[in-house]
């Protein structure tokens, strides 16, 4: 294991922010930590970065215990949610800040700076004030600044949450590209599960400080380990079956039929989403979401009674 978090715990008085977290990250791997607000994901990241001292547990990097190292002595680099660009320095000065602290001479530092700025596509902005840049540009400067020092671990704290939807989608692809090219172990914190699913090599789902599940995206999506994971990652429906079982089933796996069936309900609302339409069915157990992909043969009007069908393999057992 390149980076190892062992029994990492953080308590604030009575409150447990991170509870006994164990995680190993390979060199070159991109691991996303997802969870709702307050789940402890940012706290975890900051413990790896050295900004928070764990109450218990260790952080090992290449088998060296760096748990108590302050940030400036750790070979980690962080991209902050608000980018934390130094307002009194221009783009180039921001980018080479870390190099200057390592006593690298100006000329050489600028060379590295220009290289990295080219990588993120901002080489024309080198002399500009960071305050004149757009959100996306600032984000890339922050990334460049973090990468230019060749850190062993890259830490990203909700780097895209301040950008609008379209930009977010584009940026996460870029980040993934850069991360792959640099082949750098990366911990990426986000509350957007879609983001995590799309770029992570592995996902860690956290809730109230505890790890709910660790696994590859497809695994976590199709085989959620707990009800929370099932509900948090992707959209989800919970159903109590007549035989007593409680299952979770994804909207895209349900088929609507005007025939009769075990589970029936009334169509309360439809939302046209583009590639598909989501139907909201009131079936006595709450509202069930069903995604119907474009099928010219079936157009179900509001208020109709329908039955729900799904393949057995798509069921996720929650419990009795």
């Amino acid at each position: 294991m390149y980076l190892e978090l062992q029994e990492l715990t953080k308590n604030y008085g009575e409150l447990t922010a991170v509870d006994n977290l164990n995680l190993g990250i390979e060199s070159g791997e991109l691991v996303c930590i997802v969870g709702p607000s307050g789940s402890g994901k940012s706290t975890t990241l900051r413990m790896v970065g050295g900004f928070i001292l764990p109450t218990m547990g260790q952080v090992y990097l290449e088998n060296k215990d760096i748990t108590r190292f302050p940030p400036h002595l750790r070979p980690t680099s962080t991209v902050f949610q608000n980018y934390a660009l130094f307002p009194h320095l221009n783009v180039m000065e921001n980018v080479i800040y870390g190099l200057k602290r390592r006593k690298i001479k100006d000329k050489e530092a600028c060379r590295h700076g220009n290289e990295i700025l080219e990588t993120v596509g901002l080489q024309r902005y080198a002399g500009q004030s960071v305050l004149d840049l757009s959100g996306g540009e600032q984000q890339r400067v922050a990334l460049a600044r973090a990468l230019v020092t060749n850190p062993k671990v890259l830490l990203l704290d909700e780097p895209l949450s301040n950008l609008d939807a379209k930009l977010r989608v584009r940026m996460r692809r870029e980040i993934k590209d850069i991360q792959t090219n640099f082949n750098i172990a990366t911990l990426y914190v986000t509350h957007d599960q879609e983001e995590a699913l799309s770029i992570a090599d592995r996902i860690v789902v956290m809730n109230h400080g505890k790890v709910e599940q660790i696994g590859r995206p497809a695994e976590v999506y199709h085989h959620p380990g707990t009800a929370f994971v099932a509900d948090f990652v992707g959209r989800n429906n919970f159903l109590n079956l007549p035989d007593g079982r409680r299952i979770s089933i994804r909207p895209e796996n349900i088929r609507l039929s005007l025939d009769d069936g075990h589970i029936t309900g009334r169509v309360m609302q439809k939302q046209f989403m583009g590639p598909y339409t989501t139907y909201f069915i009131e079936c006595g157990q709450g509202i069930i979401q069903v995604d119907q992909f474009f099928d010219a043969t079936i157009e179900i009007p509001l208020g109709s009674m329908v039955s729900l069908q799904w393949p057995q393999a798509a069921e996720i057992n929650i419990g009795i």
Binding site: P71, H72, R101, R102
Partner: peptide
Amino acid sequence: RDQSLEQASMDLGATPLQTLLRV
């Protein structure tokens, strides 16, 4: 003040004193 600036500075390798003087 924006505390994340301090953290970023230290994160990039500046000692607390350097952070104080430079950021």
